[in-house]
Design a protein around this nucleic acid. Structure first.
Lengths: 218, 218
DNA sequence: CGCTTCGCCTAACATGATTAGGAGAATGCG
DNA sequence: CGCATTCTCCTAATCATGTTAGGCGAAGCG
């Protein structure tokens, strides 16, 4: 059996190879796109054979999952910092931060593309790897809710971002989960501010979700 | 050789099988997603063997291409009708139409998803199949340009739509083509209206594209 | 009636992910 | 130190893709 004392060093080494594989995968993805990476190519870049990757990851999907978890985590750090500023500063700062997010969401297409899990055929993200994205959205919706609606232009940017994220989330889980509800809520806020009649789906969702809280559970 | 007289009937029959194949492909896509369809499954549904599909389509990519051409064409008809109204009616109508487009772009995720070519691994759309989408955007940008900027809220919806489309276009052709320029122009209009400093990429693009037309060609 | 073309078939291939099973090195205990 | 165990990687093979090669029968044309 493996001794307790050396458990650390062993899993350290394991972690290192794991990271090495993920780095190789990202490097490859930057060259051939996320959908274009193959296990053989990743393995070759690390100096292994393809099946050996299964020592560290259960499947190719698991590799994608780890890659996205990494990326989302980084993204979350940036977003969190910007959102903190956003909550504490004046309109000018708000606009600047909005621009930052706008770049994330639309203008900086290359990065956005790398984050878009839909480029991966058949990939199904795990709840864990997607959690940071959900937190980002929750925080953003909360912050913009506090700011009031005179900052609607900024909110619309958020909407674009949320739309994009919710869209890709929906592609992976059409069942209508937490992410979809976030979107619907954002749509409602926006629609109220602009004076549009709610869309069919938004009206349906918001009716049950907010205005007519169904008879109390239990 | 095939006689001229029967060329019609022959190509009629050919067209019929082609449509049959495309219908089967769409039906399948609705069940298993665009990325999930396989040639063998399509063929089985039509009562053929997989290689026989190559009598009608040069590749699986060609099938996807035909599917999207069909879908975009339908989309264009709806969009064209709504845009025509948009140009001729009052603000209420504008708002209604905007809502329609908003449904297309974000709220009606299921349909939007079906239109999103990025769900297809490695798919590269042809210029022809994508042409309707380009026309829709051109028309939309033109219409919103005429309306002035007090309708900014509506324009932002368009931006979301454009962003989504340009995003997926960019994924397929990162070189920066006509679609990307359309996006940059839309971003510029929007940024001016809201009073944001132009983003780095927008400023770069718009400088060369509009304000400082480089020395005349030839 | 004979030739050509068309639409489909079967057989086979290339490349992808993945599984089975083993060999050799590293690790830990006596 | 020496032996058992565990880990990491390997080779070989399997299965599911899209795709190509070549043939066969029927329909159309002269």
């Amino acid at each position: 059996m493996l001794g307790e004392a050396n458990r650390d060093r062993v899993s350290e080494r394991r972690e290192a190879t794991r990271r090495e594989i993920l780095d190789a995968a990202w490097a490859l993805a930057r060259e051939v796109g996320l959908a274009g990476i193959t296990l053989r190519d990743i393995a070759r870049r690390v100096g292994m054979q393809a099946p050996s990757l299964y020592t560290h990851f259960a499947s190719k999907n698991a590799i994608y999952d780890a890659m996205f978890a990494q990326a989302w985590s980084t993204y979350e750090q940036v977003a969190e910092r910007d959102l903190a500023e956003l909550a504490n500063e004046a309109r000018a700062a708000v606009q600047q931060v909005s621009r930052t997010f706008f770049d994330f969401a639309v203008a900086d297409l290359a990065r956005y593309q790398l984050m878009n899990q839909r480029t991966v055929p058949g990939f199904e993200p795990s709840a864990e790897s997607y959690a940071p994205a959900v937190r980002i959205l929750e925080r953003g919706v909360a912050v913009f809710g506090q700011l009031g609606l005179e900052d609607r232009a900024d909110f619309d940017i958020w909407l674009a971002l949320i739309g994009g994220l919710a869209d890709q989330q929906h592609a992976n889980d059409p069942g209508g989960d937490r992410f979809s509800r976030l979107l619907v809520r954002a749509v409602d806020m926006w629609a109220d501010a602009v004076g549009l009649p709610p869309s069919a789906s938004a009206a349906r969702e918001s009716r049950t979700a907010r205005r007519a809280p169904r008879r109390a559970p239990r």
